[in-house]
Structure formats: C-alpha cells, structure tokens
C-alpha cells in the first residue's frame, strides 16, 4: 500500500518541479542570478504585503473613522473620537462609570486573566517539567500525556469541559458523592472566571512544559555532578544551579504566554460566551463582537481597541527584548 503512495508522491514532487522550472529558469536568464532571490521572495512578500503590512496601515484609517461601512471611502473621518470614546471614564477603577463599560470590563477581566493564568500556568509548567526531568521510566509517554491537550482545538477543549461542568455533569456528581452540594459552575460569575483560567491552563501548559523541559535538558549533566561533589543540597542545587541556568528559557516562556494570554479568545468564547453577563468577556471578544458579531458593525471602535491592544503587546515584546539583551550581556 505504501509503495504506490510513495510513487505518487514522487510523481507529484516532480510535476510540481516541472511546473515552476520553466518560469523560474526564464526569470533567471532575464534578470540574472543576483536578482533571482527576489523571485523566490515574491510570493511570500505579496501575501505578506496584502494581508499583513497593508492591514497594519489600514487599521489606523479605520480607527480614525466612524460609521458602519466597511469601505474606507464611505467612512467619515472622526479623528480620535473612537479612542476618546473608549477611554472616557469618570472613574477608571469602576467600569460602570465608563462610556464603553463593556470595554473596560473586558480590560479588567483580561488584566486579571493574564496575571492569574500566566502565573499559575508557568508555575505548574515548571513543576511538571522538573518532575519529567527526573530519571523516571516512560518519560516520553508522560511528556506526551501533558502535551496532548495542546493539540486539541479550542472548540473541542471548551466542549469537553462544558460537558464535565454542566449542572448534571461529572464534577457535580463527584461533589455530591462526597457530600458537598452542586454548583452551577459556568453561570456563577466568580466560578466561571475561575474555570476559564483553569481550562486555558489545562489546554496550554503542555506546550510550555515541553519548552521548559528542553531547557532543563540542555543543562549539562556535569554541572550537577560538580554540585554533588561540592555537597550542595537539593534546594541549593535547584536555586543556585537549575534556576539561573533555566532563566533564558523561563523568560521566553513568560513572554510567549503573556502575549498569548492577552489575546485569549477561542476556548472562553465557546465555554462561557463571555458570560454570565460580561464576567468572562476578554478584550479580543469585545473586538470581535463590536466589529463583527453585533449590528451595526462598529469597525472603527474595534480597530481602535485593537490598536490599544497592540500597544500593550508591543510593550511586552520590547520588555522581552530588553530582558533577553540584559541576559546576553551577562
């Protein structure tokens, strides 16, 4: 069965080669070997320009125009009105006093979400990585166990937990079994917020565990042996050898998870829909609902909100660059 498949794959590879060879060889003759690089770059740059660079610029036009038309020509220029509308609050600590109260609720939710989700996830990832780095049998298997949820789609993840957490679900049955009373987990504001954090940690921690584990395994064994010869205790080995050597990896993990937490959306949207009320609405969901899901579609407001989010991400990335550069200089 594999052989015809293999032959077919080879045939496909050769056909694809032939398809591109003539135009590329002609191009090489025409523009010379020095500039052929641009021919190789062309398709990627074209897509890049169209779907990345151009939109970055267009985003500012949307953010400074009003109305619900998608075509820029039909959108009146409103200056900074969208930003002003998003940022107008009597008391910034109380979303109810803000003109766009859902936006501010989403901002606060996102803030809490980022701090708690990243904090706990990195802690658990580190713990798991340390345990997997011990000399245990079936290490490959256990590594895969913790990694498996990473591959699941956010919709699947959300549905799995929705099924377990529903009113008559497994979790409540278990609670009643030990004599506790059941709870409507996803319709209680505080519990729902707890569960979106829990579920997104469940879904993503395997990825960071894997990176941290790779970082741990990159620490040469002789360093540990030297420490053992020096009579260092386990705690001292961990705090004075493992952690400092793992720091570069830790920073990568922290920044990656921060950037992704700021943009969390998928699982939460399916799991709670942002509810109850707007208790679990995060910033990206606000953008999606303002721009696409509700009528009229307030593209300008959505674009303005996304630019504010971009600023936060930019600060986070610059912070990373700064910290990693500081590390490199040490």
């Amino acid at each position: 069965m594999l052989k015809p498949l293999n032959t077919a794959a080879q045939l496909g590879y050769r056909t694809a080669f032939g398809l591109f060879e003539l135009p590329m060889a002609t191009a090489q003759k025409l523009i010379g070997i020095k500039r052929i690089a641009w021919m190789f770059l062309l398709p990627n740059l074209l897509i890049f320009g169209l779907f990345t660079f151009l939109p970055i610029i267009l985003n500012f036009f949307y953010a400074t125009s009003g109305g619900d038309a998608i075509l820029l020509a039909h959108r009146p220029y409103v200056g900074t009105e969208n930003f002003a509308s998003l940022l107008s609050c009597t008391d910034y600590l109380d979303p109810n006093t803000c003109r766009r109260d859902v936006f501010w609720r989403a901002v606060y939710n996102t803030g809490w979400f980022v701090v708690l989700q990243v904090g706990f996830m990195v802690a658990f990832s580190l713990l798991t990585a340390l345990i997997l780095n011990r000399d245990i049998p079936w290490r490959g298997f256990f590594r895969s166990v913790f990694f498996y949820p990473v591959l699941l789609s956010p919709v699947v993840v959300a549905l799995i937990w929705k099924w377990i957490l529903q009113r008559y679900g497994l979790f409540n049955a278990g609670l009643e079994d030990v004599g506790l009373s059941s709870v409507d987990w996803l319709t209680d504001a505080n519990w729902a917020f707890f569960w979106i954090i829990f579920v997104s940690i469940w879904a993503h921690m395997g990825f960071y565990t894997l990176i941290l584990l790779a970082g741990l395994q990159a620490i040469p064994a002789d360093v540990y042996e030297a420490a053992e010869m020096d009579g260092a205790s386990r705690w001292r080995v961990f705090s004075k050898i493992t952690m400092p050597l793992l720091m570069p990896t830790m920073i990568v993990v922290l920044v990656l998870s921060l950037i992704r937490a700021v943009q969390a959306f998928d699982e939460i949207f399916v799991l709670t829909g942002g509810g109850p009320g707007s208790a679990t609405t995060l910033i990206l969901q606000y953008i999606y609902e303002t721009g696409f899901a509700s009528r009229p579609q307030l593209f300008g407001l959505a674009a303005a909100a996304s630019i504010l989010m971009a600023v936060v991400l930019l600060v986070l990335t610059l912070l990373q660059l700064r910290v990693t550069r500081g590390q490199a200089e040490n």
């Binding site: 990345t52 660079f53 151009l54 985003n59 996304s306 989010m309 930019l314």
Partner: peptide
C-alpha cells in the same frame, strides 16, 4: 531589511488587524 520586516510581524499577531484584513 526584508528579514527584519518579516521578523517584526512576529510581534504583530493577526488578531490585531482583524478589521482591515477583513476588508482586504
């Protein structure tokens, strides 16, 4: 320049540009 431009977009996830990408 091309390389740096491409790397720079690593920092700008597509979720930031939902509206204009939709236009395109």
């Amino acid at each position: 320049v091309v390389f740096l431009l491409i790397i720079a977009t690593l920092m700008i996830p597509p979720t930031i540009n939902l509206v204009p990408i939709y236009l395109v």
